[in-house]
């Protein structure tokens, strides 16, 4: 299998993730979209790493995973507290960032 197939898969995954973030209102689903985008990037890293036979890309993928894990912790905490105060996780209910 050539690297092209992996890249196509990665870009499809990325597009699905981005569309999810833009289209869905539920914060948790948006979050999942973000994770999908990150993993699409990871897939691209790994594919290139294989292609060049170096470990740099895999290293980067590990970093992305760690950062994504940390980000999930913070992001979920925000979503939980948001839900506690507003009893909803819809991001469009009110323009939160304006206030």
């Amino acid at each position: 299998m050539t690297v092209t197939a992996y890249l196509i898969l990665a870009s499809v995954l990325f597009t699905i993730g981005a569309t999810t973030v833009l289209v869905r209102r539920n914060a948790i689903v948006m979050f999942m979209g973000v994770e999908l985008m990150l993993n699409a990037a990871n897939l691209a890293f790994l594919a290139f790493s294989r292609m060049y036979g170096t470990l740099d890309g895999q290293l980067a993928a590990f970093f992305v995973m760690v950062v994504a894990a940390a980000e999930v912790v913070v992001g979920l905490a925000i979503i939980v507290s948001l839900f506690r105060t507003r009893r909803t996780v819809s991001v469009d209910d009110e323009s939160l960032m304006r206030h």
């Binding site: 973030v21 833009l22 991001v91 939160l96 960032m97």
Partner: peptide, 14 residues
């Protein structure tokens, strides 16, 4: 531009 809608920010970033 600062609508406060998270998704519009995300769209503009994209």
């Amino acid at each position: 531009w600062q609508t406060g809608f998270v998704r519009s920010y995300a769209a503009s970033m994209l």
